[in-house]
Design a protein around this nucleic acid. Structure first.
Lengths: 404, 404
DNA sequence: CACACCGATGATTACGTAAACATCCTTCGT
DNA sequence: ACGAAGGATGTTTACGTAATCATCGGTGTG
């Protein structure tokens, strides 16, 4: 009793007519039925595949190569050849086939293709949540590059980055319709996990430890952090404070390490790092602590979101940025340019990262062995949150709030 | 001179043995190539992951039901039954099969399954870019819900929201391995497009016009906007100004309409809306314009990103929020709580939207006819960007910058 | 005790595509 | 002009799974 239904088909001409051969009655139809309750097996006896006229009613069988072949008067193999652009097909034949395809609205069945070819033309992306800008932008870039290479992208989200989840994802991996997987995971779990990897699924890793097991693509965290810190030093700051990302993150580690390394190399004092967790709130808390430090004139914050929180904390404490304190972030999220003040930050080239991931995955699929780490450089984007320290600035600010 | 060919059929045991045949050379490789382009460099052409020990060497044929059947001493059909949890299999048999599966590391081949069953257990998500928080959060929720229902999610990104692109996406849809599609698209293009929809692909639409063609799930834009505006009015503001989203967006339209409607109903003056494009920069520009309006004491901004820009503009012009002007945003992005000042905004329940999308899609796949629009309510999150107007505030601020 | 019946399992086959092999018809070289 | 070479197309078959029907013991009932 369902009412209308789509209508609109390309037809006219009642195409399917052509091939009386195929007699496989609508039998299967039942499958789709189900309507109403799940039970009711008997389904409407209907018997009526017949129905005559019936245009592409709800679940008419899909148009297959055989259908096209019948209409075009060629073998299905020829249809296949046309479908795959085999140059061996003569033009007149090709045209007949193309016409038939068009008339019937033929679309290759990707399941059959995948079965036959042994590949899905799909790349899976495993990520723990789409909350961080970086992950999302990388995902987006991967999707773009993959599409350009004729690959689809399947999203495999992980709720929590527990070992079990990761392992589970890997276990399910080979029943998933993907040829390769990109792991975007800023977590130490990867190596510990007993990796029972399906041998035919290729893996590329983003932002993790370069264990050498898999090809790794990543932003050049060290270079980025070094540039940021150096920038502040170059402006004349005595030293640079740091708000870091969470412990579990490799990226955070590296940025932190690099920050420390630069200070040491330059013979500067290394103030204690303030640990955050990437969120603006954690940045705010860190900022509050920093505001207490009379000699803090420059801060390198491990990501822009935390930098936002830092900015707010300073603002609330009456510290002016950049006059009293300079702040550099990391990522260059779209909002960064509109912070108060506009944030100087290290721009990550996520698009490039995504591109390289797909490239590496595709190479592996082609049988090449991709090794090593490919690092993508970052760029310093100077905006209004950094400046030279005022002479004696560190001294005048004995206590937050000014005169006490 | 290819020797035997499969062998290993139902015959006695020695299952795995049977298949060293697999000889399909790596040949195909060329196919996917195309990409190459500038990348060219041959990388180290290393052949073998060969190495030692390894069980499943590089590319041995995958374990199939037949292999399991052979080892377990049953027919492949029984393996299929076990694989699908058919209760008709007696326990002892089931156990044998399970053991065999485990020993061989059997994994069902999803391509074959899809071909046989006529469904992919996958949902596609078409979106124009992952730049907006809303889209991403919705996508994330969809992925989660889908996963819970045993469905995979395939991402189909659209570069630009041109008609051609949209149409193209639809055209490619049925060769894509998905059963249903969720369209996240805030664009008027949908209806105009000549929708040649593959009849077997179900569609659910988010944030678009409820043309009635497809089930629609969306945030209750009107309710959200009304609440926001009413909140400002309740605080005692004479009227409320508005920074809207881009023309092409339905969501923007609805928020704008609702804003206007409330003002009219309450008999307030309706100031001209400032058109933005969702970006912080456009918000900044709108904010600059608003700062010129002496009588502007309250602003409803159509999303949080633009609100960020508005806040910055006001800050730069010396207007204090909320003392001089109140601002309400829309979305409640994670950063909003750390704006200066923390932003009062309408929280969207993206998780719920995603959930409903999947639900609708699944229902349709089950054969139900899902109609109408499902709206998800928003909540007002009061933070520090709104307050009652100071008496006479509108007057004292004749011109930005103060006295004069 | 015969027979219909049911429950467990096996055999066959279709799903749509594409590789491998077979065939047929040109066209060219000697 | 005749056989070889090769180009265009047809035929067969396998990919891995699962619906469908067939088979084979065992049970209960009149």
């Amino acid at each position: 009793m369902r009412s209308v239904k789509h209508e609109a088909e390309t037809n006219e001409r009642n195409p399917v007519r052509g091939m009386q051969t195929s007699d496989r009655s609508a039998g299967t139809g039942a499958g789709g039925a189900g309507s109403g309750s799940e039970a009711g097996r008997a389904t409407d006896g209907e018997a009526g595949g017949t129905a005559g006229g019936g245009r592409g009613r709800g679940r008419a069988r899909r148009v297959s190569m055989a259908d096209v072949a019948a209409l075009a008067g060629v073998s299905s193999q020829t249809v296949s050849r046309v479908s795959n652009g085999d140059p061996a097909v003569i033009d007149s034949t090709r045209q007949k086939v193309l016409d038939a395809m068009k008339e019937l609205g033929y679309r290759p069945n990707s399941a059959a293709r995948a079965l036959k070819r042994g590949e899905f033309r799909a790349i899976g992306v495993i990520t723990m949540g789409l909350s961080s800008t970086g992950n999302v932008r990388t995902l987006e870039a991967i999707a773009g590059s993959a599409a350009r290479a004729g690959y689809a992208v399947t999203l495999i989200p992980l709720d929590a980055p527990t070992q079990d989840n990761v392992r589970g994802a890997f276990t399910r991996l080979d029943e998933l319709a993907v040829d390769a997987v990109v792991l975007i995971m800023e977590v130490h779990l990867l190596d510990t996990t007993a990796l029972t990897l399906p041998p035919h699924v290729k893996v590329v890793v983003v932002d993790s430890d370069a264990t050498g097991r898999f090809p790794v693509v990543d932003t050049d965290q060290r270079q980025g952090a070094r540039t940021a810190v150096q920038h502040l030093l170059d402006l004349g700051h005595e030293t640079v404070w740091h708000v870091s990302g969470p412990e579990e993150s490799f990226a955070a580690d590296r940025r932190s390490d690099a920050w420390q390394a630069v200070l040491r190399e330059e013979g500067r004092r290394v103030p204690p790092a303030q640990r955050g967790d990437w969120t603006p709130e954690s940045g705010y808390r860190a900022g509050l602590r920093l505001a207490e430090q009379a000699d803090c004139t420059a801060v390198f914050v491990a990501n822009d979101q935390m930098a936002l929180g830092v900015l707010r904390a300073f603002h609330e404490r009456g510290l002016r940025v950049p006059q009293d304190v300079s702040v550099v972030g990391f990522d260059d999220i779209p909002e960064a340019a509109s912070f108060i003040p506009p944030l100087t930050t290290m721009r990550q080239d996520f698009a490039r990262v995504g591109e390289l991931c797909v490239d590496a995955a595709l190479r592996e699929l082609r049988g090449e062995t991709v090794t090593g780490v490919r690092l993508v450089p970052t760029t310093l984007v100077e905006r209004a949150s950094t400046a030279a320290p005022r002479p004696g600035a560190a001294v005048t600010r004995q206590r937050p709030g000014g005169r006490r």
